[in-house]
Amino acid sequence: MAITLSILEQGLIYAVLALGVYITYKILDFPDLTVDSSFPLGAAVSAILITKGLNAYLCLIVSFLAGAAAGLTTGIIHVKFKVRDLLSGIITMTMLYSINLHIAGKANLPIFNSENIFSISPLKDYLGGFNTLFIIFLVVLAAKLVLDWYLKTKSGYLLRAVGDNPTLVTSLSKDNGTVKIIGLVIANALVSLSGAVMCQQQRFFEISMGTGAIVIGLASVIIGINLFKTASFLKPTTAVILGSVVYKACVAIAISFGLSATDMKLITGALFLAVLILGNLGKGKKSNA
């Protein structure tokens, strides 16, 4: 039971990150490396504000906004200064590393002795061991519902159109660039929110916690979309959330079977590749038939 609980907790925290990556990678077709720094950005903001005594839930909102600012930066660099997509993400990511250190004040900021979103939950006494999972679930649910709603608005439709068919957006006399910036803002806000929840759950900020965040996000999106693409009753956002849980389950199982962390990245890469190849095979067959 305990292992299932921890997989769900971890998987759902990263699911918020995966939703962000889903927007950039899948909808906008934008390889956004800002993620590796906007994840710890949310953590740094949350950790420092918590030590200053701000309400833990308000910290989540501030982290969300900080992430939005990071996305805005990448968006402006890309759209206004015409820097290539990959590079704009890398530039923001690099600069954010220093900014994160400044925000937190140091490379490792513990918040063990402060209140967090889980410890101040009014339902704590009723839920016992499920309190943490429940709060995380609420955050994920809120993120998903708002995102689902947004994608159905006019702005959301344009966002989806930019990735699929940029000419359509231009023909609607809308600015492609603005739409892209909006996408990046929402994506990084979500990623940062995920970092904030992660930090409050593990109860410390650590500068290295963002390393490989983009890989986790991409893996979750790809696993989710490919595994559940036949289940048409599932929204892509739901599939991505499930993908994140499946990914974390695979990692947890691998570790509990004694796989050393040395091999972890190799296995992750192989899993990644396998899902992609299997997904493509499926596609090939369909188009041949």
């Binding site: 305990a2 292992i3 921890s6 971890q10 593990q202 650590e206 290295s208 916690m209 390393t211 490989g212 986790i216 990692v251 947890a252 570790i255 509990s256 050393s260 962390a261 040395t262 972890m264």
Partner: peptide, 21 residues
């Protein structure tokens, strides 16, 4: 014995696994 190879995500997972076990 488990080593996280300086990966924070793996560190959390290892800690959680030990507690679960």
């Amino acid at each position: 014995y488990q080593n996280a190879q300086a990966d924070m995500g793996a560190a959390n997972q290892i800690a959680q696994n030990f507690v679960n076990d």
